[in-house]
């Protein structure tokens, strides 16, 4: 004991000194924030700008001319409607397919479980474009190229990872004792799932659904490769805008329009879900 005492004091001493300012951390945080926020800010400003010439820091003329021009175009509205339809259908289908699968992965043990579970990573482990080309070749034979359902299918593949892995974590984090307590008071297995497991895992699953909706809304490569020329989603339209006429404002206006759904979704998520659910979904 006599020997332990000085050692204890020695380990205590640093705690009394005020923690030094973490300059490295601050620099990283500022740099990262700048990298994310500055481009958003610039695009946001461009969307409401009519004249902005070098070397001015602030645009010479603000205005809504490009908004008028964009919003009066029929193809913008049809693309927006189509994108929302696609995202909704894909998310619903994905939930219907993936949630039961996620429950099985979380709770049941069956042969090949781990191999299957990790196979969902495979789609993200290879260059995506190569995979898309291969799928496009198959879809061509099935007459799915240029169709709504062709795009649904290709985008469905992209949601699998989120919609399996996050809900698996959600189901695994539900306290088994809560489920047993429900069995104890007379609930059958299905009732337990509906009344206890699902509400408990709900917020995290909602986070997965949201990520999958937003991810689908912005998905471009698959929608372009499989959907062209008949199906033009918002991001695809934006690319063609930018390619056809090098007017920055068109791109900026569309970008701001594209933010709106995800911004609303994220604000909604913050209210309903809370940051913890996202963290839990990723094993945090």
């Amino acid at each position: 004991m006599e020997q332990l005492a000085p050692a204890t004091l020695a380990t205590r001493r640093p705690a009394l000194v005020r923690a030094p300012t973490d300059w490295t951390g601050i620099i990283f945080a500022v740099a990262l924030s700048a990298a994310v926020i500055v481009p958003l800010l610039v695009v946001g400003v461009w969307a409401f700008t009519e004249v902005w010439r070098y070397p001015n820091v602030i645009p010479q003329q603000f205005g809504l001319r490009f908004w008028n021009q964009t919003l009066t175009r029929a193809d913008v509205w049809s693309a927006l409607t189509l994108s929302l339809q696609l995202s909704t259908v894909v998310t619903l289908l994905s939930a219907a397919i993936c949630l039961p699968a996620a429950y099985a992965f979380a709770r049941l043990s069956f042969p090949g479980r781990n191999v299957l579970f990790f196979s969902f990573l495979a789609g993200h482990a290879f260059p995506k474009f190569g995979l898309l080309i291969a799928i496009a070749a198959i879809f061509l034979q099935l007459n799915l190229i240029g169709t709504f359902w062709g795009v649904v299918l290709i985008q469905l593949v992209g949601t699998l990872l989120f919609m399996i892995w996050i809900p698996v974590a959600a189901f695994q984090s539900v306290d088994r004792r809560m489920e047993e307590a429900a069995r104890d008071v007379g609930a059958g297995p299905f009732r337990v799932f509906w009344s206890i497991t699902l509400p408990q895992a709900g917020p995290t699953i909602a986070a997965a659904v949201l990520l999958s909706f937003v991810g689908t809304f912005y998905e471009t490569e698959g929608a372009w490769l499989i959907g062209a020329p008949g199906i033009r989603t918002m991001p695809v339209l934006m690319i063609s805008f930018i390619n056809n006429q090098m007017v920055i404002q068109y791109g900026a206006v569309l970008s701001v329009m594209l933010w709106v759904p995800s911004f609303i979704a994220l604000m909604f998520a913050r209210r309903v879900i809370g940051g913890g659910a996202f963290a839990r979904g990723f094993g945090g």
């Binding site: 306290d175 004792r177 809560m178 047993e180 307590a181 429900a182 206890i196 509400p199 408990q200 709900g202």
Partner: peptide, 9 residues
């Protein structure tokens, strides 16, 4: 149950 296992929702 030891952990109470109350349904928190």
């Amino acid at each position: 149950f030891q952990s109470h296992a109350l349904w928190t929702h």
